[in-house]
Amino acid sequence: MNIFRLAGDMTHLASVLVLLLKIHTIKSCAGVSLKTQELYAIVFATRYLDIFTSFYSIYNTLMKLVFLGSSFSIVLYMKYHKTVHRSYDREQDTFRHWFLVLPCLLLALLIHEKFTFLEVLWTFSLYLEAVAILPQLVLLQRTRNIDNLTGQYVFLLGGYRGLYILNWIYRYFTEPHFVHWITWISGLVQTLLYADFFFYYSQSWKNNKKLQLPA
């Protein structure tokens, strides 16, 4: 564990907490894409199947359980909690997210490090995570009023990926066998998707204005 990875995990955790705070205490999911949340639930469910087969550390297992639990509870909240569901921007959140799943699965079947069940699902989760933010970014662009919590959520999520890139660079130089092209490229693609958002987020922060993305 290095400082970049820990900071990345903590940023990821913070993003989830911000979202849960919004949904649980304010009882609103305005501006939050259910499509993205459903994709994340699939990402974690397919990536963390190894909690049944391998043990790394208590930290690792706990974090996996937190990400699994939070992603599924966010989806359930948005779908079935009356008040939360009412605030959902259903008409705006129209990205055809299921069309992302099949190509990612096919790609994982074609390009992977080892052809085993867990390994292919792990790889699938990496590809799907790379594009899972797209419905959320599209929704942000359509939403005229982005509240602070939603902006912070996306900012923290992008920050987590950025920190993981620093972690991979660090590990590449400090651990002799650490070469994982699939993880790196999908992580890089994912981070690049946030570039535009980061630009407007920093602008709004600098000018102390409300975050608004151009249509």
Binding site: D9, H12, F67, E119, N167
Partner: peptide, 10 residues
């Protein structure tokens, strides 16, 4: 060659 594969990351 050791069967090195790293899944310790989240």
């Amino acid at each position: 060659e050791e069967d090195y594969f790293d899944h310790d990351e989240l």
